[in-house]
Design a protein around this nucleic acid. Structure first.
Lengths: 126, 126, 126, 126
DNA sequence: GTGGTCTAGACCACT
DNA sequence: GTGGTCTAGACCACA
């Protein structure tokens, strides 16, 4: 299972926050391979968002082969194999970091500040 | 001066890319206090976008007191004083880092990997 | 709720009149924190102006953190906290008063006359 | 004579600041009836503004019959008679005050604050 | 020539 | 249906 938590102020659209939290749940093991996710309707009620919003998140993860939908049965975490191709992995890290760096730097933050703040996140328990 | 560069694929709207590049130019010193920016028309031509798009970017920065516009005269970098309210600064850093962390973590990257990659960026000359 | 009212003769641009009326509505309590504003489209129809004009007004207030917009949901009055930074507040009062004084004095009005007239406005119920 | 002083940050356009200062000079007696004003060119140089800007200010005051231009001789303060018709005087005060009040109130300033700030201006020496 | 405002209309993103 | 972005083009205000 997994506890979802949407922040309207984050700027990120809800559907993206849902996607990120599901991916995050998977890599941290909160969501096991093959585990069933809440139904679209149930999650929409829980998060107090529109059905379409949850639907969109599930659909995008399905496209990325992270989830599998079985008609009439529900939505499940897909096999671990296809998460990220190892070849892509480094490129992805680079692109995410570069974008982050550009944005933070445009506000005048120094690299040391960014790193210090990152280290502070979640205490390092992970 | 400063070389602008729009990327239609980035997903970020044009006017926001312009804003970010001006902010970035200021914090890196490419744009000096009091310096005149390209005219709305000139920049629109250079970037091949509509007048209003450039105008919108300048306007937002003016509201944020980053720029000063004098009608009939031009647009200038404002005084350095109120770039970001100190109180907001830390909150901004936190929110940027948190979002970055969530995204990167959702791809399974560990904090150490992120920090290592960040350290690699731009050598630290800044 | 709030009754908007544009005056084409006032000299002030439409979008600024909208901004002023929203700010005024907030400080007088006609607009409560968290309340939803008319949709961009609805207000545009009501005021017989273009969508973009209303949008521009909302956008400026959003940048100033007076409003919050949630895409797909609507536009809302933001939390009361950061209406005007306390530091700016006094400066704003000074500049508004100084301009008023200069104009009134240029017509030969004495300070006592201005103050007497001000006291007469709205009975003081506010 | 009169010492002009333009403030680029005031928001008021230069030509209006010039107009206000001339009117102000007249009502305070710094500028006597029939006195000659600086030439457009001289004032433009002194204030470091465009010729057209000064020209526009003089022209508007001429329309209001505050100034008189004699071709080839210069610009002079007109006869005092036509400054403001007494009938208009009260209406003018009301309209100026009302506008000021609306703007200040939209920023949440109370009447007492406005009056206090007004009293503070120029010490009351006038 | 500089920026500012407004319109009309199209298309996109999110709920 | 909500707001967001962009374009094209007109007209205005200021220096």
């Amino acid at each position: 299972m997994i506890a979802f938590n949407l922040d309207p102020k984050s700027g990120a659209p809800f559907y993206r926050q849902i996607i990120d939290q599901i991916r995050y749940g998977i890599v941290t093991g909160s969501l096991a391979v093959g585990e069933q996710l809440p139904t679209v309707r149930a999650l929409a009620v829980e998060l107090k968002v529109n059905l379409n919003t949850v639907s969109k998140a599930y659909k995008e993860l399905e496209i990325q082969k992270v989830l599998e939908t079985h008609q009439g049965t529900g939505t499940f975490i897909g096999p671990v194999s296809v998460r990220i191709a190892p070849a892509e992995r480094e490129a992805k890290l680079k692109s995410i970091c570069a974008e982050f760096y550009t944005i933070a730097a445009s506000y005048g933050f120094k690299k040391e500040e960014m790193i210090a703040e990152l280290k502070r996140i979640e205490g390092g328990a992970r």
